[in-house]
Design a protein around this nucleic acid. Structure first.
Length: 257
DNA sequence: ATGGTGGTTCGACCA
């Protein structure tokens, strides 16, 4: 079972590239972020023609997440618990094939750090830690996949000094990410394929991709039951290399179920 | 020193 996360930066603008990648990579499950459309505008027919069911949580213009799968799909959750007045479309959770739980998330960016956006990010992360704790108690195979907007360490940043005060690298952001690891979740890519410069995002500006000036901010966190089944993981730079790319590229892992 | 990219949406915000 291959599970991937892909921030598409508009599912409509990325539809040809997304369909091409689904056809080549044929993942069993894909978590998408930054759909930038409401559920009614999601290209459901085209995705279904490619062989995927979709659980979609959207909003106009910003954010938006989905879980696509070639297997059975039961939606468990359409928002992160703990803030019923938070209408930002950033979390969706589903049971895949009746045996794998997948949470797809788009964590707030948090910049600039002196605005209300940074405390919103930290509050969102606290709620994610609580949900992750609840899920751990179920003792299921679970994957929390998405754009975390956190570089866990300086090795995940092409220029750590320039990003030292960025919301993606701040001590508070990294501490909250580590709380997920301390609960017992495993960083799938680091467990299977560690090493420097495993970036998943490159800015559109300054030829960042060509220079490999990137960040590792897209992550797959595995519950112990899922981590015990981990056989491989990687970053697929193909979609970032093609025409009209997203600024992110997919990260994936394979579980032996 | 400035602006540099791209998406949504049509001025400005977000990343």
């Amino acid at each position: 079972m291959r599970i991937a996360s892909f921030n598409v930066n508009s599912v409509k603008a990325r539809l040809p590239a997304l369909l091409a990648w689904l056809g080549e990579a044929r993942p069993d499950v894909v978590c998408l972020q930054e759909l930038k459309c409401e559920e009614a505008g999601f290209p459901r027919l085209e995705i279904e023609d490619a062989g995927y069911q979709a659980a979609v949580v959207g909003q106009k213009s910003y954010n938006g997440v989905a879980i696509l799968t070639r297997h059975s799909l039961e939606v468990e959750c359409r928002a992160l618990p703990g803030a019923p007045d938070d209408l930002q479309a950033r979390y969706v959770e589903a049971l895949i094939g009746g045996k794998l739980r997948v949470g797809g998330l788009y964590l707030p960016n948090g910049n600039p750090v002196d605005s209300e956006k940074f405390p919103y990010k930290l509050n969102w992360m606290s709620r994610l830690v609580e949900r992750a704790r609840e899920l751990l108690a179920l003792e299921e195979m679970t994957v929390l996949a998405g754009d975390y907007n956190v570089c866990p360490s300086d090795g995940d940043v092409y220029d750590p000094i320039a990003f030292a005060n960025d919301a993606l690298c701040r001590r508070e952001s990294r501490a909250a990410f580590r709380r997920l690891l301390h609960l017992g979740y495993v960083d799938g890519l680091m467990a299977s394929d560690p090493g420097p410069r495993r970036f998943t995002y490159w800015d559109y500006q300054n030829r960042a991709f060509e220079r490999d000036d990137g960040l590792r901010i897209d992550h797959l966190l595995l519950s112990p039951q899922a981590a015990d089944r981990l056989v491989d993981a990687g970053v697929d730079k193909g979609p970032r290399s093609g025409g009209r790319p997203s600024d992110h590229t997919p990260v994936w892992c394979e579980l032996d179920l």
